[in-house]
Design a binder for these strands. Sequence first.
RNA 1: GGCUCCGUAGCCAAGUGGCUAAGGCAGCGGAUGGCAAAUCCGCCAUCGUCGGUUCGACUCCGACCGGAGCCUCCA
Length: 529
Amino acid sequence: METKQTAAGPDSLPAIEVYSTLSRTKGPLDTVTPGHVGMYLCGPTVYKPSHIGHMVGPVIFDTVKRHLVYSGYGVTWVVNITDVDDKIIAESTTRGTTMAALAEEMTADYLANLACLGVTGIDEMPKATDHIGTIIAFIEGLVAKGCAYASDGDVYFDVTRDTDYGKLTNRSVEQMQGEGGSTADRKRSAADFALWKQAKPGEPSWESPWGPGRPGWHIECSAMSKAILGETFDIHGGGLDLVFPHHENEIAQSESLHDRPMARVWMHNGLMQAGGAAGKVGGRPREAGQPDEAADAAAQAATKISKSTGAEPFKTLLARHRPEAIRLLLISTHYRSPIHFGEEPLRESAKAMEAFERLFARFARIGGKAFHSLPGRTRKAGDAAVAAAGPEAVQLRAKFLAAMDDDFNTAIAVAALFDFVRTVNKYIDQHALETKKPPAELAGLEARMLVLRELTGVLGLFLEPPAAETGGEADEGLVGKLMELVIEIRANARANKDFATADLVRNRLGEAGVVLEDRPDGTGWSRKP
RNA sequence: GGCUCCGUAGCCAAGUGGCUAAGGCAGCGGAUGGCAAAUCCGCCAUCGUCGGUUCGACUCCGACCGGAGCCUCCA
């Protein structure tokens, strides 16, 4: 149904609609360079282990990139690392280490977490401390243009010289006459913000035309995005909490210096919300279905996670929940909406996700192929082959792609995938593929799974086999043999209508954490998730 | 106080000025199955409240109630 053609797209790239915070409307992604997208995401300040909230943006923009690349665009994705900052200095002091060492440690933690979630598309991760020269040059340019002024070793941006200051968040300089913070006496206007901060004794510092100091918060993004992506690039993203003052100030800096738009589109993701009163943060892994509904109902006050009492490190969260379930949870909601986070949503997400994995396992039994070994496809390559997957697949794929083209609506895309799984299961049921396996229908099944592989790949889901399958405990071979034996003995009992014994075996195995499933083609076993 | 945004089934969550208001979790009924699990089929909402615009609104406007974010270097 989509035959739209944008002026920009060479080679008839699909048109992608994107909402911009700046224009407050959705519009076609019209890239600076036809066919190529430059996008910049504000990354973390590395002073503590990252928590779930830090993962939202990367997962969303990773999905954005996947869809763009899948659709034929070239993409350069930049995520900065803020490795010089007051909080890092403070934390390193209390830990008795250096800012650089702490930043390095926390950056490693961040990267490891991203890898777990399948965030693999980042092309460049510039660090502020690697770009001090770039930053200083940027500030000098602003000072030379009269947009910034030095004051007592600091340098401030003069918001009164920026006529459209506040356009991103609909604020005017006049309505922001606050007290100006601790450095009010050095600023001309309360709304002015620091580009360069003079070092206090003992603090890490760099030489500059204004004396030893370090960059302000906002300037690194302006300087580094320019250095890597250019004065105007396509997409600038971040959490909604960064819109003001961070992105407003980035715009002020960059556009004052360059006299041209900084980014074509400003994309902001909703914030992770943690249930308030119930404080699920320290929730224990196991609890035998307690009726904690009352407690949950009482806990309405949702607040963003960074404000809740100590968001737990992402690493410990991973000990309890599969990364696939976390990623699915993050993309089950439209990216601009807040995400309700907690043990319960996580468990539901895991439950939902297992429907996919059961189908993968079913396919492996029938077709003898691992879902994860199927080749991924690009949008174009898929077009030719979807017909073989049947009309429902064609229709659901179209729904999926239309949703993704429309401001990356992953919620609808995910829904299409659930529908897809149902149609494939139905196909297997209707043709009794588990017992009969006629070649034509087998090929039809594989064609369907190929489409599923193609689309889950766009969302960055199910890229790797579950750890349990590959991890391979040392005794798996022995356990497998024993289970084979147990199942065979139980099968004999069932054949003899000795259901008491058969059920006893199944129940006792269940208590031991092993699930038996009697299927048309035999009995299978698995470890309880 | 200023600026954004949200309020859809038991819970989570898409969406549209007018065909049957996605999907997930939970629940109910059914098919299959010795039972269980899985799978499939079906059921389960009139869209916070009150007005207005319109031939027609859940979707547009206003008011109100309720909630969230930002205005404090928190993604």
